[in-house]
Write a protein that binds this DNA or RNA. Structure first.
Ligand SMILES: [Mn+2]
Ligand SMILES: [Mn+2]
Ligand SMILES: [Mn+2]
Ligand SMILES: [Mn+2]
Lengths: 239, 239
DNA sequence: ATCGTATGTTAGTCCATACTAACTCTTAAG
DNA sequence: CTTAAGAGTTAGTATGGACTAACATACGAT
């Protein structure tokens, strides 16, 4: 007897404004921690007033893209998640294309992709992906969702989570702040680089790391934005 | 004593919405005939109601981008023309890039460029242009304005203007209707193709042309959308 | 010179999206 | 338990941009 109501499975591409799309993406990102996306957090991420977020959440809810629990936060619906993942796919493929084919620096592409992601057709994005050999990660190490919305969502540790003496492979870095990316690049921190924690000051103090033989001090804010995968210190020689 | 009022010379990029930019482009195009852009013509071109155009013209006028003569039409100001030409440059470079580097057909790119032109940064467009060797014409034969707004604005004849027996080189074709472009492609009509008028029915009837040895009948609507440069029929053998 | 039609504008409405100010919940400290 | 701070919402306003309906103008045909 329990009949599924006749709800649409997908939002028609183009039915959403660029603004609405960016909200969905922000909510998707905030939700990764398990908790629903908090109004103020979304507002801070998008640089708008909390009241504006309340308004948009109502609109997105009316469209069936989010579930809003009053005073609690928002979660994407199935449909909302699909739309968010499609947008994220567009964003990351565009970033990859700009870096690989047009010589942009990894610190310049987020901003550009942030605008192009709304105007680029699926056709264009798929052609870019094909031209690059269907990459699975963007220039910052972020996984690219497949066209049917599958993405590796495993939680990663950051350098701030490592113990002294641990060695780790950099998997991914936060890409929002281009100055931060230039700072990382100057130290050789990029996806696949190997970092070793040499020291940690107490009370959440700076972390001393070794990258390519050089030592660097990273503040907690920076360290927690570099995501890594600890490397088991094997004693056997390679192979 | 006549001091030039302190008017801005350029619109700050990003100060204009995509909508406003499209209006400027439409006005630029309509103005090419010498007459100011008529409200209804702009409305028809953009597919919106005339009343909406009246409204936008007032906004653009307030921004110093057009001169509006009530009940007469609109002309771009210096600043408006600059903005329009920059947009057109972006549009045409994007079209060229999509065709040359991503394998799009010439019938698919106008629509895509129509959206991307608003989000693409100058940096991106210049990188695309550089990657293509700074093309001077888009895939439809339209001239690409330089980054400082210089463009070849000479008026062209169309096939509908040719006399029987005349031979001409196709310079440019109208690119708005993708079905029309496929129709042309099927006949081999593209920039640089040679066409010869074999016959013309009276009273604005269809034109019979020869392209690559094959005869085709073109209605006036089609013939007047293919722009050509008559070729002087030289009798001497080539070189 | 008049007038009707095509062209254009104004008035009024709507929606998306932002803002500020003022109010209401929730929750952690005491 | 109470309560105040912080988080979130509502109300009211603004702007861009679109629409329809109603009104105004220009101009070619008579
Ligand atoms: Mn965006
Ligand atoms: Mn990225
Ligand atoms: Mn456009
Ligand atoms: Mn074109």
């Amino acid at each position: 007897m329990k009949k599924t109501p006749a709800t649409a499975r997908t939002v028609r591409r183009g039915a959403l404004t660029g603004q609405a799309e960016d909200y969905l993406k922000a909510i998707y990102e905030m939700e990764q921690g398990g908790e629903p996306a908090a109004t103020n957090a979304v507002a801070a991420l998008l640089g708008i007033a909390p009241a504006s977020v309340s308004g948009m959440l109502q609109r997105l809810s009316r469209l069936g893209l989010v579930h809003v629990e009053r005073y609690r936060g928002a979660r994407l619906t199935h449909m909302g998640r699909r739309a968010a993942l499609q947008l994220i796919r567009r964003h990351r493929i565009i970033e990859s294309y700009l870096v690989t084919r047009l010589g942009f620096g990894w610190d310049e592409v987020d901003e550009e992709a942030e605008r192009l992601e709304h105007g680029a057709s699926t056709e264009l994005v798929e052609r870019m992906a094909a031209a690059l050999g269907h990459p699975t990660e963007d220039p910052h190490g972020a996984p690219i969702p497949t066209s049917d919305g599958v993405v590796d969502e495993r939680r990663l540790q950051s350098i701030a989570d490592l113990a002294v003496g641990q060695t780790a492979r950099v998997v991914r870095v936060s890409d929002r702040d281009s100055e931060f990316l230039r700072y990382l690049a100057a130290m050789g921190i990029r996806p696949n680089a190997t970092v070793k924690v040499a020291d940690r000051a107490p009370f959440d103090g700076p972390v001393t790391i070794t990258v390519r033989g050089a030592r660097h001090q990273l503040g907690v804010a920076a360290a927690s934005r570099v995501y890594v995968e600890p490397v088991a210190r094997t004693r056997r020689a390679a192979k």
